[in-house]
């Protein structure tokens, strides 16, 4: 059995001006093939103007089990939202 190709994560810019967004993944032997395959798999209906590929193994992420603890702090910081401050209507847009 030959060596399994690595997994690549695919990011596509849907339209000029937008950021690339993650759309899925695929296996490929190198970045060049990953780009070509991504084009054929993910942009057959004109879904993109640009593609980024990143080897999945190169992506670091938090352990999902720690999510509650990791993302808890902002919950108590409600003042970061502009609606926390009451601005009377006659003051105008702010």
């Amino acid at each position: 059995m030959s060596k399994e190709w690595p997994l690549w994560e695919i990011f596509i810019r849907g339209q000029h001006g937008l950021s690339h967004r993650h759309v899925g993944s695929l296996h490929a032997p190198d970045s060049e093939m990953a780009l070509k395959n991504a084009r054929d798999v993910y942009t057959r209906r004109n879904e993109g103007v640009s593609i980024w590929v990143v080897e999945s193994a190169k992506i670091a992420a938090f352990d999902p089990d720690t999510a509650e603890h990791n993302f808890a702090a902002p919950k108590s910081k409600v003042y970061r939202h502009p609606t926390f401050f009451e601005i009377p209507e006659d003051v105008g847009a702010m």
Binding site: Y79, R80, H81, P82, F84, F85, E86, I87, V91, M94
Partner: peptide, 8 residues
């Protein structure tokens, strides 16, 4: 948020 907290 920045402007509103200042106004507040």
């Amino acid at each position: 948020f920045h402007q509103r907290q200042g106004f507040d």
